[in-house]
Simulated assay, not measured.
Amino acid sequence: MAIGRIFGFNYLYGNNIDFDELGNKEIDNNYSNTSVSFSPFLSYYLPCSPNSNLRFYAQIGGGIELRISDNNETTFYNSGRVDVNLKTNYPDKYFGFSLEGFVGLNYFIVDNVAINGALGCVYNKAKESKSETWILSDGTQVTSPEWKAT
């Protein structure tokens, strides 16, 4: 039997730029997010020959993920000039919960080091809320109502 946990820290950054057929910039999108996660698990190794490097196992676990920061800004261009700026707002941070169950096979190269294959099922549930703020080229600002996603 093995008891373990996974602590995760994730950072994602991206920038997408689209151009029209004349080479004018149409869209410039910048996004990033940072999250932390914690996932404990319990593995049970099925009895096998003491000389075998192959070990079958069953594993159950679960976890949580919390987004610390979320940033998403897009600029739309018309004939190369700024037309609209869009910023996505996240009033309630993303929160995710998961449960999982696996059956698998480990091939131990040396003690505590193995090549792993598994088949299983994962249940995820998450929630967040967001709204969008549009800033038009004339300075007009429009913010959408908040909506929740689960």
Rank of each mutant, 00 (worst) to 15 (best):
S98Q: 08
S32D: 11
G62Q: 06
G104R: 00
N30H: 10
F7Y: 11
S39P: 00
D138V: 02
V110W: 11
G117A: 08
E21L: 09
A149C: 15
F56Q: 11
V82T: 12
N51F: 09
I6V: 14
S39W: 00
S37T: 03
Y44S: 07
L86E: 14
G62V: 04
E21G: 07
E21K: 06
S49A: 07
F7D: 09
A149R: 15
R67G: 09
F9Q: 08
D111Y: 13
N10L: 06
S49E: 09
Y94Q: 08
V142W: 11
R81I: 13
N72H: 10
D70I: 01
Q59V: 04
A149W: 14
L46P: 09
G120W: 03
L105D: 05
S137N: 12
G104F: 01
G62H: 05
Q59E: 13
L66V: 15
N112C: 05
I27A: 12
W147T: 14
G101C: 02
E132W: 14
F19D: 04
W134I: 13
Y94V: 03
I68T: 07
L42N: 00
S137M: 06
N112G: 05
L46F: 14
F9E: 10
G4P: 07
L42Q: 01
N71I: 10
G104I: 03
T140H: 05
G63P: 02
C121S: 15
K25A: 00
V82I: 14
Y90I: 07
N29R: 10
N24F: 04
N24L: 03
N71S: 11
W134M: 15
D111M: 11
E26L: 08
S35A: 07
T150S: 14
N116T: 09
F108R: 09
F9G: 08
E21R: 09
L86Q: 13
N16W: 14
F95C: 05
D18G: 11
S39D: 03
G8L: 11
D20S: 00
E128I: 08
K148D: 15
G117H: 03
A58E: 11
D138F: 01
V84D: 06
Y107I: 01
N89Y: 05
G4L: 08
F7A: 12
M1L: 13
V110K: 14
F97P: 00
W147M: 12
V84P: 04
E65W: 05
P50F: 06
G80H: 05
V113Q: 08
T88K: 13
P47M: 04
I6R: 15
N85S: 10
A114L: 05
I68W: 04
N24Q: 07
N24C: 01
Y31I: 02
A114K: 13
E146L: 06
